[in-house]
Simulated assay, not measured.
Amino acid sequence: MYKKFVIVFEGIEGSGKSYHINNVSKYLSKKKIPHIKLREPGGHRNSEKIRNLILNKNLKFNKNTDLLLYLASRSENIKYLKKYYKKKIILIDRFTDSTIAYQHFGMGVNLKILKMINNYLLGTFKVDFTFLNIVDEKNMRKRLNKRKKLNRYDKFKMQFYSKVQKGFIKISKNKKRYMIIDSNRPIDLNKKNIIEKIEKLIK
């Protein structure tokens, strides 16, 4: 038997979180371990429609509209997530920490309001473990330059991403359910460390 944990991958753009969540999903599939993988914003088909709106590079919303769009996307996802909660391993690419890091630390949205709505949406749904991927400016820029398509959140000033990453680190500080992944290190080393941690978590 294995533990049906909720495992989240967090980090700023170019930090490698999406690469690693996909690698973990492949590993679980190879082991024939039932799991679901979901991204935010997006995930559920209605959430994907909201994602297209949020990340449209031709649109610009104020910070409160941004927050409410992200939470609307999560609202569509949560019923789907609760369906599999404690029944399968759940892998999520970005979740509540991203909302706090980007909308509060990055954009200055009131933290109490943000937490209140999040708690209302999630109810008893809890994250068990988080891999926080960090990256320096040089590697982030290099990775973004390789992308064929850039969305609205790929085009902020470096100062914004720095605030967001510091926010992530502050959220995770002195908490056992976080593992910091230094994405400036060789990718194969991080892949190995993450899979080893996954194995320990689900046993």
Rank of each mutant, 00 (worst) to 15 (best):
G106H: 00
K155E: 12
F129A: 09
K83A: 12
K148W: 05
N139Q: 01
R143T: 02
L132A: 02
E76Q: 15
N119S: 11
Y80K: 06
K112T: 01
K87G: 08
N151K: 09
I92V: 12
G108P: 05
Y85E: 13
M140E: 11
S98W: 00
S73R: 03
L132W: 05
R147G: 03
E76F: 15
I117P: 07
I113A: 08
N110Y: 03
K87E: 02
R152Y: 06
M107A: 11
I78E: 07
L114D: 14
Q103W: 03
K138F: 15
K88T: 09
Y153N: 08
N145E: 13
I100A: 09
M107E: 13
I89F: 05
T96N: 08
L81V: 12
L91M: 10
I92M: 10
L91G: 09
I90R: 04
R147S: 01
L121R: 07
K115F: 14
S73W: 11
M140I: 05
I113R: 08
F131H: 00
R152M: 02
R141K: 12
R74K: 07
K82F: 15
T130P: 02
K126N: 13
K87V: 00
F125H: 06
R141A: 04
M116T: 15
L121Q: 09
L91T: 07
T124W: 09
L144Y: 00
